[in-house]
């Protein structure tokens, strides 16, 4: 019997970048970036120190929210936000269904496809808040500008996901319907709709949730809704009212998520 000797050291082979020099260069690059980035953050520690007190008051305000003293503002903001969310979601769905179908490669002719993809790219490229700024400049302050903003953002979101779902449908089923001599409309109605509908409903509910959250933001630039109330409360350092608004937002988002999971189960 021969005595075999075995290695006494072992290093794990590198998983991502095999070239050691490249790997160390990358580590060094990351380190240099972090040093520069952290270095470029100028902090006014005196101001932060003062702020700690306000921060603590915010934590207290969050724990003991004050719903009553600004209730008129809060309730008006809330009504604006909720109505804005509802109408924008519905309008968004109505517009995004045809655009989504038009942006599906397997259903739409080329020119329509490029047009719809263009609309989607345009809607997705800019943040809600920037669109809100532009629309407020055009349509004046108030929830109508907010409604338009959310509708516009909904179109980009829903059409894109709907188009992807339609492109992912089971071709065999579409083939079978086409083989019966169905027209384009019948094809959409019998082959595409049944496959896409449950997911579309899920997406719409999810977008409703997002629209409500966004409605709390665009108020900051004058597009109505609870964001305006929140902005005022924070500007006045009324952290207990701000805490109340934040808690209401969290509660509504939780309620929306909870009920949408139920509705989705019920639909399927």
């Amino acid at each position: 019997m021969s005595v075999t000797t075995y290695p006494r050291t072992w290093r794990r082979p590198p998983t991502m970048i095999r070239d050691a020099r490249l790997r160390y260069a990358l580590y060094a690059g990351i380190l240099v970036y972090l040093v520069l980035a952290v270095g470029s953050v100028e902090v006014n520690w005196a101001r932060v120190w003062e702020g700690l007190d306000r921060g603590w008051r915010f934590v207290l305000g969050f724990l003991q929210p004050d719903f009553t003293s600004r209730w008129r503002d809060i309730s008006q903001g809330l009504v604006e936000s909720l109505t804005m969310t509802m109408t924008a979601t519905v309008a968004g769905v109505i517009i995004s269904v045809p655009i989504g179908i038009g942006a599906a490669r397997n259903l739409a002719p080329r020119p329509v496809y490029y047009l719809c993809r263009g609309i989607i790219a345009l809607s997705r490229s800019l943040q809600e808040i920037i669109i809100a700024i532009l629309l407020v400049a055009m349509f004046g302050f108030g929830p109508f500008a907010g409604f338009l903003t959310l509708t516009f953002a909904t179109i980009g979101f829903l059409s894109k996901l709907l188009a992807e779902d339609i492109e992912d449908i089971d071709e065999a089923q579409a083939e079978a319907i086409r083989a019966t001599g169905a027209s384009w409309w019948q094809l959409v109605n019998y082959a595409v709709q049944p496959q896409v509908m449950p997911r579309l409903i899920g997406l719409v509910l999810y977008r409703f949730d997002i629209n409500f959250r966004e409605s709390a933001v665009i108020g900051i630039v004058g597009a109505g809704g609870i964001g305006a109330t929140l902005n005022t409360a924070i500007d006045r350092y009324e952290y207990d009212s701000a805490g109340a608004v934040l808690l209401i937002i969290i509660a509504i988002v939780m309620a929306a998520e909870y009920s949408s999971s139920h509705i989705r189960k019920w639909v399927q």
């Binding site: 075995y6 006494r8 050291t9």
Partner: peptide, 12 residues
């Protein structure tokens, strides 16, 4: 090192 040596022996 003994663990690594032993691990190689077991793999063998």
């Amino acid at each position: 090192e003994t663990d690594i040596e032993n691990a190689f022996r077991l793999l063998d």
